[in-house]
Amino acid sequence: MKRHFLGFCLAAVLLIGVFCPLARAETPDFPAQALVLMEASTGQVLYEKSAHVQRPCASITKVMTLLLVFEAIDAGTLHLDDVLTASAHAAGMGGSDIWLKEGEQMTVDDLIKACVVMSANDAAVVLAEAVAGSEDAFVERMNARAAELGMNDTVFKNCNGLDEDGHITSAYDVAVMSRALMQHEKIFDYTLIWIDYVRDGQTQLVNTNKLVRTYDGILGLKTGTTSAAGSCISAAAERNGMRLIAVVLGAENTKDRFSAASSLLDYGFVNWKLTTPELPELPELPVTGGMVSAVSLECEAPSGVLTASGDAEIGIKLILPENVPAPVEPGNVLGTAKVALNGDTVQSLKITAKTEAPAITFSSALQYFLACFFAA
């Protein structure tokens, strides 16, 4: 009897392992000191390990540098075809660079390309000096922008990520600034480059992010390696309309870095999905005391709802009054559309007037009566 019971237990364990593989994937582990997986549109963290432990992040620092550069481009204070001149300070950078000489000139476009693809420290400094006047002033802006984004674990000391005492961040903060950079779609023109050239073809650039060639749906984003930081990456990818950011800090080597990032992204795409609910048809809303009897409505577009893969009930409930008094002008908020996930509200959308309904006045009523009289 005891032998039969043990056999039954073993069979049960095997069946659970075969038919419930996701149970084993609920607490995955990947080879790195700190990890974060974030969904880009919502900012929701799907997986984390030592997410707020402060660490150096090497050249992933350049994510913030690039964010400020693209914000300057958007503001019109910097342009892709601007020609910048390398200072002695920029030319003196060590580590990964494109060997800029003092006085050498290069366009903003090529400097961004070198900064992203080759992780060029000298190019990053030239860009920083162009935006803020000096690297020190630029670093002040980096820290101010980090504070605005809620990056409470971060202190920047330079614009390129070279090891320096007190230059620290966290996996979570890296995901936050990566998400902000990804709002500038132009960045993907650079992060998806595999091989390109600057200096009229004399200098070849080869992307340090090998996932650009190997991972389905990859968008970039930035690698980094120093002795203090270890091997790091912020990897972004998109599948089925969902963008994920996988941050890996402190891997032992580049192989572990890329393996952890791709496995983390796989985990996210397998276990999560983004669904955009469809708005129901909006009724006309009756108007009291108006020159028209009803107004047409329009509603803000719902954003994607993040759910674990599997069954999830998403619905939209319209909350509107029975009628609304005149006058009504286009854009007036008249109601709300509540987006619910499994009964819990996750989004509240404004329902506004699309058409107008002027209030009835003596003169408007008289004009209406005369118009009807003469039309007859």
Score class of each variant (00 low, 15 high):
M118I: 00
S119L: 09
S119D: 14
S119V: 10
A120M: 02
N121G: 12
N121K: 02
A123V: 09
A123T: 05
A124L: 03
A124K: 01
V125E: 11
V125W: 03
V126Q: 14
L127M: 15
A128C: 10
A130G: 08
A132P: 08
A132E: 11
E135P: 04
E135Q: 15
D136G: 02
D136N: 09
D136M: 01
A137M: 00
V139F: 10
R141F: 04
R141W: 11
M142Y: 11
A144P: 07
A144Q: 12
A146N: 09
A146T: 13
A147V: 11
E148F: 01
E148Y: 10
E148N: 14
E148H: 13
L149V: 12
M151S: 09
T154D: 07
F156W: 06
F156D: 06
F156V: 02
F156S: 05
N158F: 03
C159T: 14
N160E: 04
G161A: 10
G161I: 00
G161M: 00
L162S: 06
L162C: 03
E164Y: 04
E164N: 03
D165Q: 15
I168S: 02
T169M: 03
A171H: 12
Y172P: 00
D173H: 03
D173K: 00
V176I: 11
M177S: 01
S178I: 02
S178N: 02
R179G: 12
R179K: 07
R179E: 09
L181P: 10
L181E: 09
M182I: 06
Q183M: 07
Q183N: 07
H184I: 06
H184T: 08
H184G: 07
K186P: 00
K186F: 06
I187W: 07
Y190K: 14
Y190T: 07
L192G: 00
L192T: 15
W194I: 04
I195C: 10
I195Y: 13
I195D: 07
I195L: 05
D196Y: 12
Y197N: 05
Y197M: 07
V198G: 14
V198M: 14
R199M: 01
R199K: 10
R199I: 01
R199F: 00
R199W: 14
G201M: 01
T203V: 08
L205H: 08
L205V: 09
N207P: 04
N207V: 00
T208D: 11
N209K: 04
